[in-house]
Design a protein around this nucleic acid. Structure first.
Lengths: 253, 253
DNA sequence: CGAATAGTGTCTATAAGACAATATTAG
DNA sequence: CTAATATTGTCTTATAGACACTATTCG
């Protein structure tokens, strides 16, 4: 219920003037994930200003008030930090908002965090804005190296990513338009951190209706250490996996 | 990355003054769901001021800058609109943020929507703030009667609620501390809108580890139209259902 | 050739759904 | 008594996971 406030706020609401209002800033942050050399990486920038100068942070910035919606702002920030004007084949979704009053020492900042899945993108060295940005492996990343509450946001993003692979075809967002089932399995193994049984995985993904559609051709070569060529697939029309690909259960519970 | 902005914004950021900044308001809205007489209801208020005067809206209001976080603000708004100072046994979680520039005609408002599951609460007539609030059945609600983009928010909330029942024990949040398996089944049937097989449901919920814990006693009476007394249960310690209770598949795939 | 891998077959334990059966209670 | 309901039992079918096997390709 925007701008309708209860009780004692209602009077001055009628004659609303934003300049009298205690300020809240809205920013948009992006947890951009990609796979490089088979391991999961996240895009981080090194902060050039205080607070947390020199520490790593998620790419992000202010919402341009009155001019863009949240998803647009997230895509814009991601494009600026990667130096890519085009971001083809990148999945972008909202993750959640973080609004603790003290999460930024300067003022109350509400950050709307987003989650991006991208195929292997080039190193963000080109643009000037992207100079401080780089891909970092998530498994060797020290959470204490992150500024603000970005370690928490990253942790939430990884939880969400792992869950999304179970019941959506989004694993393919880490790959090109065509891909093989072993490549798809590598995505699941990297994000979930568990090795999967090749044969069972193969049969299972093929059994999900609408997940994969064969292109008819195969890879030109076998895998680096031998083996036959793999068939190539494209995404089907399903936007949910029925039945889902469940992770190996977290032990006893 | 709060307050770290790329390129041309970086200069004036150092000498940041919120009064020079294009204003964005942050509100918190709540989609509060409860079960009354076996049907799902949502808490709505009738707007007393333009825009959308007289139309129905989700309860909500401004985030108190610098003084509260998002979840606290949502709980406060819900308490104010229901007239209840205590909100025991209410599950509250963040749903998502809505920030299209034109969603409120007065200014750019980012609303952080929340989702609440509550046991059958009294009608919100008591407090003055809650005068215009009432529970509305969701299945007979005309989406066009809702102000702003609240129909979309409500639809997203229902999607989330239906999905959450599959893999979390949150159905119990609609019930008291003790409940019977038929009562729990009624929650699933109301939220999913499908009748479930009593026998199979019974066995299935009991088979999920950590979901239900028997209290040892039973209901004092049978159900209104006959039948034996039902055993009472309390929630177990699981916060996820493994394996999940999957909905009947949406037809062909 | 030897090793690694894509893809298929087979078997078993488990789970889901249809249905039946029994016991208990309301009216 | 009759109807409705809680709970348990049984059976069939689908699925997950373990494992084996074949064919293909790299070095």
């Amino acid at each position: 219920m925007p701008l309708s406030a209860p009780g004692d706020e209602q009077d001055w609401l009628a004659a609303y003037d934003p300049r009298e209002y205690p300020p809240v800033a809205v920013t948009v942050d992006v947890v951009a994930l990609t796979l490089r050399h088979g391991t999961l990486h996240v895009l981080l920038v090194e902060r050039g200003t205080p607070p947390h100068l020199g520490r790593l942070a998620l790419p992000g910035g202010f919402l341009r008030a009155g001019r863009e919606n949240l998803a647009t702002a997230a895509a814009r920030e991601l494009a600026e930090e990667t130096g890519l004007t085009e971001l083809p084949r990148v999945h972008l979704e909202q993750l959640g908002s973080y609004g603790a009053p003290d999460r930024d020492p300067r003022m109350h900042v509400v950050s709307v965090a987003h989650l991006a899945f991208a195929p292997d993108l080039p190193d963000p060295q080109a643009g000037s804005d992207a100079a401080a940005a780089a891909w970092h492996p998530v498994d060797t990343l020290d959470p204490a190296a992150l500024a603000f509450d970005h370690a928490r946001i990253l942790a939430d993003a990884l939880d969400r990513a792992r869950a999304k692979l179970e019941y959506t075809p989004l694993a393919a967002a880490f790959l090109g338009p065509d891909f093989t089932i072993p490549e798809l399995r590598a995505v699941y193994e990297s994000v979930w951190g568990d090795p999967l049984h090749p044969g069972n995985f193969h049969r299972k993904v093929l059994s999900v209706p609408g997940f994969l559609r064969p292109t008819g051709d195969t890879t030109p070569h076998g895998s680096p250490r031998g083996g036959p060529r793999a068939r190539r697939y494209r995404l089907g029309d399903a936007d949910r996996l029925h039945p889902p690909l469940l992770r190996p259960a977290p032990d006893g519970g």
